[in-house]
């Protein structure tokens, strides 16, 4: 098993921390994981993206140049990275934020109204967990339990009250992936 996930959007959308959460969950399951951000002036320009590799084997390069899954939170991110996805790969779009369609027909596309679902849950900050839930359902790279477990480590104790809403978001995302898939 080797999943190379590219998460792309704007700074402030939790792109980097979502990637770290996923990498942490993989680590809890004793898989080989690596996380790498884009860095430098590009970062100051507002875009943010990171690559997460989760594998049963040692990871050669942590750079995700040809993602098996692309998660996009903005239109420019979709335009920039759509072509990079491997044939047969997946593109997960936060459709609350991105209206564009994917031009390719050799990839699986899943449109997830993540912000809308987060609102329904009552916490707009768990939108990324909705997408993570869908990713987990589609790939089986980690379990929802491991993500919840890593939330306990990643979040400062005062934020642990966010965990139930995140769990709900992960489950809603997984459910949606099952329905759409």
């Amino acid at each position: 098993m080797l999943e190379e996930i590219l998460i792309a959007g704007f700074g402030g959308q939790g792109v980097l921390s979502t990637g770290q959460l996923l990498a942490n969950a993989g680590m809890i399951e004793d898989k080989h994981v690596a996380w790498i951000p884009s860095y430098g002036p590009e970062m100051r320009g507002g875009t943010a993206n990171c690559g997460v590799t989760i594998s049963d084997e040692p990871i050669s390069s942590p750079l995700v140049t040809e993602p098996t899954t692309l998660i996009v939170m903005t239109r420019p991110a979709l335009e920039k990275f759509e072509k990079a996805v491997v044939p047969g790969g997946r593109i997960l779009i936060n459709s609350s934020l991105v209206e564009q369609d994917v031009k390719r027909d050799d990839v699986t596309v899943l449109k997830i109204p993540a912000n809308q679902i987060a609102e329904e849950i009552g916490n707009p900050r768990v939108a990324n967990s909705v997408i993570l839930g869908a990713l987990i359902k589609l790939t089986g790279i980690v379990t929802i339990e491991s993500v919840v477990e890593s939330l306990k480590k990643v979040l400062p104790p005062r934020r642990h009250n966010m965990i139930p809403a995140n769990r709900e978001a992960l489950e809603r995302g997984a459910q949606l992936a099952e329905e759409l898939g």
Binding site: M27, A34, W35, I36, Y39, I59, L63
Partner: peptide
């Protein structure tokens, strides 16, 4: 190199 500095690993 920059990758080694920037990447996170267990």
């Amino acid at each position: 190199d920059g990758i080694l500095g920037q990447m996170m690993e267990p």
